[in-house]
Design a protein around this nucleic acid. Structure first.
Length: 158
DNA sequence: GCCAACGTTGGC
DNA sequence: GCCAACGTTGGC
């Protein structure tokens, strides 16, 4: 299977690209996804070696803040089984973990966030899942052409 | 802070 | 299985 591309959303007030920059090995587990559609992607489709856009939501501005690489494919999100975690789900067990996560490593933090407003106005990006009305999916597929275009945009913002 | 859009829950 | 109520997301 060829390398695939994704976009992961995070509110920077909760976990930002700078938090990942400061993490050991610039690596983190992407815990806490509690939506079944996003869960299915993490469990079944996001694979080691895939590319990830780190997206800041609820930010000023919201937009793509950097590029990551998946370093571990989907595995059970054990925060669901931790009563002390904010992500605890009492239904999750070892035999039925329900929720899944992957590990990602920050490859590059963009000098400037590529803002959503620019993405919306850039030909070739208007059909991104990100731009679709009402979209709330926190794990999204990104087309190879979109992957290249956004990196080119990031270069123009330097 | 507002509010539209969406996902989930739970009564029936 | 339907659907109203509710909670959450996320842009603005």
């Amino acid at each position: 299977m060829a390398r695939r591309y994704w976009l992961f959303k995070s509110e920077p007030s909760s976990f930002s690209v700078d938090d990942l920059l400061g993490a050991p090995g610039r690596t983190t587990c992407w815990e806490g996804v509690r939506n079944y559609q996003a869960r299915n992607l993490l469990r079944d489709n996001v694979k080691k070696g895939d590319g990830v856009f780190f997206y800041h939501s609820g930010a000023r501005p919201s937009g793509v803040a950097g590029i990551c690489v998946v370093t571990r494919s989907g595995y059970p999100d054990d925060s669901a089984q931790d009563p002390n975690s904010g992500y605890h789900d009492p239904r999750a067990t070892g035999g039925n973990p329900i929720w899944y996560m992957v590990d990602i490593r920050l490859a590059r933090k963009f000098t400037n966030v590529v803002p959503l407003s620019l993405i919306r106005n850039t030909p070739g990006l208007e059909n991104m899942v990100l731009c679709r009305k009402g979209n709330r999916l926190s794990i999204q597929p990104v087309a190879p052409s979109e992957w290249r275009l956004i990196q080119r945009l990031a270069g123009t913002l330097r």
